Amino acid sequence: MTTLDLLAAGSAIAPTRLDPLQLFLDADIVVRLVILGLVLASVWVWTIIFSFSLRIGRLKRSSAKFEQEFWTSDEPENLISRAKADNASGRVAAAGLSELRRSTKSGLKDRPAAMGRIAQAMEGQAAVEADKLAERLNFLATTGSVAPFIGLFGTVWGIMNSFFQIGMQQNSSLAVVAPGISEALFATAIGLFAAIPAVIAYNRFSNVVNGFEARLQRFADRVHANIGREMENS
C-alpha cells in the first residue's frame, strides 16, 4: 500500500467532531490525572454553588421571620431561647441578652461599659455567623486561582510529550503532533471550565455574605438601642 493510500485510509476514518471522552482516554497518564483532578474540582465547585444558594436563602427567610416576630413579641426572651439554636439573628440577640445578664447580675454599676460590652458581644456573634457562612467559599477562591495553572501544567506536559514523539518517530508532520497537542489543550480547557464558575460564584457569594453580615449588624444595632432605652427606664 502506498503512502497516498495510507493517507486516504486515515482520512476516511478521521473523526468528524471533537470527542472529549476520547481525548481523555488517548491522553498521557499525567494529562489524564490533571484532567481528572480538575473535573473533580469542578464537581465540588458546583456542589458548593448549589448548597450555598439553598443555605443562604434559608438563612435569610428564617432571619427575616425571627426579626419580625422579635419586634412584635411581648416575650422576646422566650422567642430568643427557642430560635437561637437554628437562627442567625436569634444567636446575635442571644449574645446580647447573655452579656446583659452578666453585666447586671450584681447590679448595674457602669452603664456605658455595660452597653459597650453588649454591643461587642452582638457584633462578635454577627462576625461569627458570617465566618461560618463563608468557610466553604475559600475552595472557590482557590479553584478559581489555581485551576488554570493546573490545566496549563497538563498542556505543557502534553506538548512536551508531542515533541518527544517527533524525536522518536523522526517525523514532524501534523499527524504526529496533532493528537498530543489536542489532548494537551483539552487540559487547559478543563482548567478554565473549573475556574470560571468558581471565580464568578466566589465574587457573588462574597457580596452576599457581606450583605448578610451587614443585615445582622443592623439588627444588632436596633437591639442594642432597645436595651439602652430599657436601661434608662429601669
Rank of each mutant, 00 (worst) to 15 (best):
Q120I: 15
G228C: 02
S145V: 03
K60S: 05
T155W: 02
K60A: 02
N138K: 10
F66I: 06
D86S: 12
A127I: 07
H224W: 14
G116C: 01
A27C: 11
L7M: 13
I166K: 02
M1T: 10
D221N: 14
K132W: 06
I35F: 05
S42H: 04
T72F: 13
R215H: 12
G124L: 12
V156H: 05
M115S: 08
P76D: 08
R17H: 14
L6P: 04
I166S: 04
A85M: 08
L59P: 00
S98C: 04
G211C: 05
R117C: 03
K60L: 02
V199P: 00
V128T: 14
L140V: 11
Q125P: 12
L23W: 06
G151V: 04
I35C: 06
F139Y: 14
A8D: 14
P15W: 05
V208I: 13
S51L: 12
E213C: 08
V92R: 01
T16F: 08
M115V: 08
V128M: 12
T3I: 13
N171M: 07
A12K: 11
V34M: 03
E232P: 00
L25P: 02
R222H: 13
Q170I: 00
R204Y: 11
S51A: 14
V92H: 05
A198L: 07
L33K: 03
F186R: 06
R229V: 11
G90T: 05
P20D: 06
V156A: 10
P76K: 07
M231E: 07
F212K: 02
A175P: 00
M122D: 10
A194K: 00
Q217C: 02
I80E: 06
W44C: 09
L137Q: 03
A64F: 08
F24R: 04
G228T: 00
V43Y: 02
T104A: 15
N161C: 04
V209T: 01
I13C: 01
G228Y: 01
F193Y: 13
A130C: 11
N161H: 13
L108W: 11
E75M: 11
S98I: 03
W44Q: 09
N203A: 09
Q217L: 14
M1K: 08
M168A: 14
A119T: 14
L21W: 15
K132Y: 09
E135L: 12
R32C: 10
F163Y: 09
I118L: 08
I13Y: 05
R102H: 12
I150H: 01
A220D: 08
I118M: 07
A14N: 08
I56P: 00
